[in-house]
Design a protein around this nucleic acid. Structure first.
Lengths: 146, 146
DNA sequence: CAGATATCGAGACAAGGTATCAAAACAGGC
DNA sequence: GCCTGTTTTGATACCTTGTCTCGATATCTG
């Protein structure tokens, strides 16, 4: 839950520093806004929360975090994109609560096994995949969130 | 391969007729353009091919075909949407060639089994999913399409 | 054919992003 | 701290993929 390391610097910023990018004021603000959001969020929500940061910069920063694998981008059933902090390192998939937007990672080895098995069923050579599970999360099921 | 039935009317049109919609001139043109496209296509490609049909009408018609399950909409790895004729009736998934855009259906029972198994691994109650396999299809592998 | 209704085309609008470009912020050497 | 070259920024225009509105048309039904 704690996204700050001992250094007082967010994992998001560290991730892009590792890629050779600078930890600037604007990026720090975006990282803080992300860490303050409970569940998943949209790019526009960050823009609204940070009127002092340009919209282009918000999108550029999200893209940086994405390419550093510190953030993930998922899509709701209707295609609306949402971002969420990505904690796991290894390849994994996401479940998205269609009620509250909570995003959770899961690394189902079964899924990987299936993908390997699909190689035989699918025409051509598999180069990648996308998989998202839509859920109604426990919190929403128990009525905590309407 | 033949998308015309004995009636001389495309399956796309029949599908929306079954839903109580009319087979109009504009819809016929869109259906023909779709049937003439070799692989998958974008909405804008249809618009360009049919300058006499309004853009809104093209999108409305694609939406109708989608809701009649006569068409499917997939997204390339970068999120770019593509449409393709959907022939199978049962629930299935799609493979998309990232080189030529060819879309193929596959109904992998294994996938369904995994989804059921995931119920235990995932927090909450599964309500749906999205799954796409990206491939380099046989035709592209053999060099037929660069 | 007439009337009721569905559909159409044009064009404005919306969401989510990217491109451009001059100005500001940064890092490193002195 | 100051200089200098490189990154980054914010404003703004633009792009893509659609959707909404609305008066004009086309389509079915009787």
């Amino acid at each position: 839950m704690d996204s700050q390391n001992g250094n007082g610097r967010s994992d998001l910023l560290l991730a892009i520093e590792d890629q050779g990018h600078r930890s600037t004021h604007a990026r720090r603000l975006v990282a803080e806004a992300i860490e303050a959001s409970a569940e998943s969020f949209t790019a526009e929500e960050i823009c609204e929360q940070l009127p002092s940061v340009g919209r282009a910069t918000v999108y550029r920063t999200l893209k940086l975090f994405l390419s550093a694998d510190a953030l993930c981008k998922v899509a709701l059933p209707d295609g609306a994109p949402r971002y969420a902090v990505d904690t796991g390192g290894r390849h994994h998939h996401h479940s998205i609560c269609t009620n509250c937007g909570a995003v959770n990672e899961f690394r189902a080895s079964t899924v990987e096994r299936v993908l390997r098995a699909l190689d035989r069923e699918v025409d051509g050579e598999i180069t990648g995949h996308r998989m998202e599970i839509f859920v109604r999360c426990d919190k929403c099921l128990s009525g905590a969130v309407q």
